[in-house]
């Protein structure tokens, strides 16, 4: 059974169809990439999957359960996490705290218990810090743990978003243009990171413009154009597909 299944998804903004009649399914434990020219509806698709936008019609299933109209925090509870194209780091916190927020679902102290700082809270706090630190290490950010997120360079913040998502131990990670704005070295590091994420058993759904990165790490590539599915296949198939080439070269 597929991990994520999208059926006849559609999103209209006024008269404009940002996504129309889109169906696809993402199997477990792979890197599944979505590409397409600017304005093809890639980020809109991510916002629909996480219900930041409500779909106009169609349905979305995660592990066989319908999630189409669940609020984002419930979707997160089922095991989906994501990063954002325009960073959504908590700039009012430091790096480790950002990642500790990612551990929200793996801990449970409430407001009153926290105010009283019950022994259970102290124990959990230690545990959460440990988990957060592991996620930071995984992403190579342990040196930055106590730095305020506010003043850090863009590349670090991008990794921080990944670390934060990983801290929630998702089964499916949506990454929205992780390589945008990164230099070649950083992109190479990112490539390794995504591979390691996938190796650890997490399915990665990737929206990306950097073709060499996509072709290198993806098992399946889906091409969107004007909100419609243009093609789906292995990187090799996609690179040979004349329709895809035409869409990218702006023909037709």
């Amino acid at each position: 059974m597929a991990l994520l299944e999208v059926k006849n998804l559609e999103k209209r903004f006024g008269g404009l169809k940002a996504i129309s009649d889109l169906s696809f399914s993402v199997p477990e434990k792979m890197v599944f990439s979505i590409i397409g020219p600017n304005g093809a509806g890639k980020t809109t698709l991510f916002n629909l999957l996480t219900n930041i936008y409500t779909p106009s019609s169609g349905s979305i299933f995660f592990k066989g359960q319908e999630i189409t109209n669940l609020p984002p925090f419930k979707i997160a509870r089922l095991g989906i996490s994501r990063t954002f194209q325009n960073l959504q780091v908590f700039l009012n916190m430091n790096v480790i705290e950002n990642v500790m927020v990612g551990c929200h679902l793996r801990s449970k102290s409430g407001l009153i218990a926290s105010a009283l700082r019950l022994p259970s809270v102290i124990a959990e706090e230690k545990n959460v810090k440990q988990m957060a630190f592991e996620a930071l290490e995984f992403c190579g950010l342990s040196d930055y743990a106590d730095r305020p997120a506010g003043g850090l360079p863009y590349g670090i913040l991008k990794k921080l978003e990944v670390a934060r998502s990983l801290a929630s131990k998702p089964e499916l990670l949506l990454m929205d243009e992780p390589a945008a704005g990164l230099n070649d070295t950083e992109t190479a590091e990112l490539c390794q990171l995504i591979k390691r994420i996938c190796d650890s058993g997490i399915t990665v759904l990737l929206v990306e413009h950097n073709m060499s990165l996509v072709m290198e790490i993806s098992q399946t590539v889906l091409v969107l154009n004007y909100g419609k599915l243009l093609a789906e296949g292995t990187p090799e198939e996609i690179q040979r597909n004349p329709e895809v080439i035409a869409a990218y070269l702006g023909e037709g």
């Binding site: 609020p71 925090f73 954002f84 959504q88 780091v89 908590f90 009012n92 927020v101 929200h104």
Partner: peptide, 16 residues
């Protein structure tokens, strides 16, 4: 603090 920083990201971390 997460709600303060970015409500959407807070939701995506599972915070109601």
């Amino acid at each position: 603090s997460a709600v303060h920083g970015s409500e959407i990201a807070a939701q995506m971390m599972g915070i109601n």
